[in-house]
Amino acid sequence: MVFSRAASIRDSLSRTRRSVFGQIAGLFGPGEVTEEFWEDLEELLIMADIGVDTTTALIAGLREDAVQRGMRRAEQVRGRLEERLVDILEASARPYLEGKRHLSVVLTVGVNGSGKTTSIAKLAKYHKDRGQRVMLAAGDTFRAAAIDQLKIWGDRVGVEVIASQPGGDPGAVVYDAIRASRSRGMDVLIIDTAGRLHTKYNLMQELKKVHGVAQKQVHRAPHETLLVLDATTGQNALSQAKVFKEAVKITGVVLAKLDGTAKGGMAFAIARDLELPIYFVGTGEKIEDLAEFDAHAFVDGLFEGD
């Protein structure tokens, strides 16, 4: 069975999406709704990393729907399931960088290896394509060659990168970058930060400081604080989002690496429990592989069979 994500996401996907669990193809056929159906559905949702709590709540709701609306066939349930899933995502949806201002400051945070630097490069291109003047701040002064990595991307996209020496103070980089953005009339400043596990107290304190520097320099900044999440992450994603939100008031999520076979189902728990919008999804390694989040397309990707 071939899976694909609809619309914009589908277009940017170059590779075939296949499910190892082919038997699910038949799940939403014309068959009757049986106990076995509910079990298979549970499996499908869990396998998509939707998590036990959200899955249990969804299935309980659907069972009620099935009784109340007299849904007997699996395909009817599928329609209702899609509605419920889309509802969860749309309840927390918000436009990205809403409103007008001179300089928009976007802070990106996340655990190690989630895909922050690559996502920033893609985001820079996204803004540039919309005619905005973009600058990047190399706030990851810790990881070896992180500054080089951002600079290479900056060259490729054609945007300037403000950086200090490796090991420098990330707060100072942000301060410099904001001043430079202002004096050169930038529209958007995107700040990279070092990857950190949300359980590291000192590193989270450091992040708060970086957040604070932006806050002091620009009115209401950062205007977006994006958590970059790896789509292959399991239930820990919720813990990450919770702690980062507490520390630096995350305003939205970028779901990176959605080009594999991972379904990114923890987005539902994050939307439901933390009321955070998913703004973008990363769909490949190329600079243009960033799509605006589309709840319908995302839900289709969970179980759409071609």
Binding site: V20, I46, M47, T232, T233, G234, T261, A262
Partner: peptide, 14 residues
């Protein structure tokens, strides 16, 4: 492999 990997770990490893 990342300890935070979800259900996908099986497909990757296999």
């Amino acid at each position: 492999a990342d300890a935070m990997t979800g259900q996908e770990a099986v497909n990757v490893a296999r």
